[in-house]
Design a binder for these strands. Structure first.
Lengths: 402, 402
DNA sequence: CCTACTTTGTGCGGTGTCCCAACAAACAGG
DNA sequence: CCTGTTTGTTGGGACACCGCACAAAGTAGG
């Protein structure tokens, strides 16, 4: 384990932003000499760079150092019913490459979908190399239940896939030099929301809504995966036992009352243009917002009821988990301003802890890139855990004393 | 941070039981010489001792080492409505001292309850010293909402306490040389169930039932506390919106249908001897078991309904958290054999993941010592995190080469 | 019984990381 | 200009761990 403190310094720069060597030393309980040596090593690895001066009142000003994303990238990928997508992020969180391909996974063979995804990953990898950077790993988000011990997509209700070894299949197609892992799509979206270093984003509950509902729990900055990796399946918590039948076969799942379909059913008749199958999701949501802004009673009632159901479930989960924030992602984010009041009401009413345990209701700003961003973030964790794994700078003086 | 590997070796011995130096080395990725040196250091600290030979087929047999609880103890304490209690555990988990005092916290002033608890802790401490051991810390479980950042009991509905700084009050009374911390009682009970080293007890959900309901979540072997420390308040998840009013003021909280009162209401008329206020809890539960064993229809129906409600809530939490096991503690444990079928039915029916995500239903065997045991365990964590904090053996050759 | 082989535990020298102390560099204030 | 303060670097030393060699303690097979 070569120098755990090296990783410590790197993470501190990620979490706290640019700062001087002296500040790093005091914050991490190291001596200035040790901090200096570690920063020097990280510079040689091409992971940090100088970032101007840090003026601190009295005494000599410090020379700040900051993350330098220049040498490595993590790739996040996603396979969903309607599209496959990839993104490449460098250490500093900058987007280096991004690709997206619309498709209908239900009309294609499994192998074909994986072919397309592999092609996208290859293009992303080429972009990364063209930018003079190195890929350190790829994490693929899949919409479905993943048995993490066996790297198997046990069941993907929306994809209609069963027992697909996505990781092995993709590794075979890519023949990549870097590790390829799989993870639940909603869990990755949750990781993307957990900004490192922000104390208000270390214990969060992410609820991701589309036709189905998923989510993820981040506790203490780390994803909660559960025993077999099935954690975060909020959509199938039974909240309305006498209610409607869910696609999963059960009755009254949360997604039957808070999924996209429930909103559309409540807000529009079957012949309403809102129900036109050719209408894109973004356009539907824009139309719902428009009607609500105009004060349309039926739309407002539908949104209010949706907020009530979300708030009810969120209150239960908040009693159990006491998150700092509940982040609503997916289609909820677009109509957030009309949902917030009823959600917050239910949260205040349904949570035992005073002021709902301090839990805030927030809406994601990541749009539909959340999952791939989370994937890239997880891939980059390898570097934050062991910076020496990053390829050394070729242009640096090797072994030089300065 | 003096030798992180020292702690690593100690924890490996706790989690995996007695084993040879060579096994420790290979399991932890150390060399045999390093493992030997570390074990020697732990022996000097009085934390481990020889434990016979370990025969491994071919070659020279190893000399196993094991935890030696001989030098240090952690104290767990508890303040509840009906009693205060303490326990002292050594490193190996042996009970060194145990005290319990029945009282009615509602009829006593806050200061008086704390006086009694402090007295109990002092007696426990004296017992520990009399056994030739040293106290390394004390963790107090309190039934109520604890704001962890401020070490404050925000509100204890059953104790009827508000904004009591339990930690500071107790420190003042004890003037102890060791750290005194507070923690939610149910959370401590959860920690006590999470056996270190047992993979089936690293991700668990503990549901603790008495008149109220509480619980705790252990994820990856670590207690999930949430943003402010309010996690695990399962009892006030609203599962029956049209149901009965709860003591907390809300309607339909889980504990209104799965708390002890709900069971008694369903199983016995007001004039039933089961409702005699002088009857101890243990006796009530024994009587319920007796009637159920005899096939009493009303009792069986009440137990079945209770199991249904528990199973329903457990299924929701299992969808969210995917625990390896749901451990039912408190009064549920005593009547477990009559609850299991209906709980398991609901779990299988209500959880999305196949086979309910592999989640088992288990019943606690710790009785009402769970919370204090958890407290002592947390206190001992200080030693497992930094073994050098333990007092060195006075009878050991200091600095000797052997 | 004796030999070959395997595995364990313990020395010894070397390396790398970090702490401590000292010092030059850079800035503010009088 | 001089003093006080803070930063970054340098060199010496402590300590933990690795790699290697070697004695100790067993099994397997003749």
């Amino acid at each position: 384990m070569p120098s755990a403190n090296l990783a410590l310094v790197l993470r501190q720069l990620r979490d706290g932003g640019p700062r001087s060597r002296a500040r790093l030393a005091t914050e991490l309980g190291l001596t200035r000499s040790a901090a200096s040596a570690l920063v020097g090593e990280l510079e040689d690895l091409g992971l940090v760079r100088a970032a101007g001066v840090e003026r601190g009142g009295l005494g000599r000003p410090g020379t700040a150092v900051e993350l330098d994303g220049g040498s490595v990238c993590g790739i996040g990928a996603e396979v969903n019913v309607n599209h496959v997508a990839t993104i490449a992020l460098d250490l500093a969180g900058n987007v280096v490459a991004e690709h997206r391909l619309a498709l209908d996974a239900n009309r294609l063979a499994v192998a074909e979908v994986l072919d397309r995804l592999a092609e996208l990953v290859r293009r992303t990898e080429a972009d990364v190399r063209a930018a003079g950077r190195e890929v350190v790993g790829c994490v693929v988000g899949v919409a479905g239940l993943l048995d993490r011990t066996h790297e198997l997509l046990t069941v993907g209700p929306n994809l209609r896939w069963t027992d697909v070894p996505v990781g092995a299949e993709l590794r075979g197609r890519l023949g990549a030099a870097y590790p390829v892992r799989i993870e639940n799509e909603s869990n990755l979206a949750a990781i993307a929301e957990a900004t490192p270093g922000d104390p208000g984003r270390q214990d969060i509950l992410v609820i991701f809504g589309e036709v189905g509902m998923g989510g993820g729990i981040v506790a203490g900055g780390r994803l909660l995966r559960g025993h077999q990796g099935y954690a975060g399946e909020f959509g199938h918590m039974i909240v309305d036992p006498g209610g409607r039948r869910c696609g999963c076969g059960r009755v009254g799942c949360w997604e039957t009352v808070a999924g996209l379909r429930a909103l559309l059913d409540a807000a529009a008749d079957p012949d309403d243009p809102l129900r036109d199958p050719d209408l894109a999701l973004d356009d539907r949501l824009a139309e719902i917002n428009r009607r609500a802004d105009l004060g349309d009673a039926r739309t407002l009632a539908a949104l209010d009821q949706l907020g009530n159901w979300i708030g009810m479930g969120a209150a239960m989960l908040t009693n159990a988990l006491n998150p700092a924030a509940i982040v609503l992602s997916g289609y909820y984010a677009a109509i957030g301003r009309h949902l917030r009041p009823s959600i917050e009401d239910h949260l205040l009413a349904g949570v035992l802890a005073p002021h709902a345990g301090g839990t805030r209701v927030e809406f994601s700003t990541l749009g539909f890139t959340a999952a791939v961003r989370g994937g890239a973030t997880v891939a980059l964790d390898a570097v934050f855990d062991d910076p020496t794994a990053a390829p050394a700078r070729t242009d640096a003086l090797t072994g030089g004393t300065r």
